[in-house]
Write a protein that binds this DNA or RNA. Structure first.
Lengths: 83, 83
DNA sequence: AAATATTTGTACGTATGTATG
DNA sequence: GCATACATACGTACAAATATT
């Protein structure tokens, strides 16, 4: 059973990793994901989106570059509290 | 013929992409690569280092994140002039 | 103008290592 | 020790932007 579907259009001119990053950013913006809460694991995001691992990691990298999340090896990626 | 050897130790605790990023950053620091000059292409860096393309790109991403270079698709990666 | 080559971008898949729980 | 989760590194294929012929 798939945790939750995240629809990605591979034919869109918007790259798949960007679509996923936008989706997750929206989750944070709207408060569906709150400060200090973990994002779904890479495996969960792979299952939910159908994307490859590298593509999922690329999406998370965007969020990290934008200061929205922080990642800790072995633990997970967490929503960054407002500065 | 290989443009120029860049020695990378895959057994080091320092990741290969970091070793390459450090090497290139040093080239910029010392002025071997100057402002607005292009870095070697990804293909050149692959040949010179023996690393895979993804690893080379990861190294360049570090430089970009640190504001040392800017990349333009179809053209190349250029040393960023001082702000 | 058009075709070709070069260069970076995206996406896939695999394997192994490292850190945490 | 074991399971989970992120990190590193390899390789492949095709797309898109730019430069060259």
């Amino acid at each position: 059973m798939v945790a939750q579907e995240i629809k990605i259009d591979l034919r869109s001119s918007i790259p798949a990793y960007k679509q996923l990053a936008d989706y997750l950013a929206a989750q944070i913006e709207t408060g569906a994901l709150r400060a200090d809460q973990p994002l779904p694991s890479e495996s969960d995001l792979i299952d939910a989106s159908g994307l490859a691992r590298g593509t999922v990691r690329q999406a998370i990298a965007v969020l990290r570059d934008n200061g929205l999340v922080v990642t800790v090896q072995g633990r997970g990626t967490y929503v960054r509290p407002e500065p």
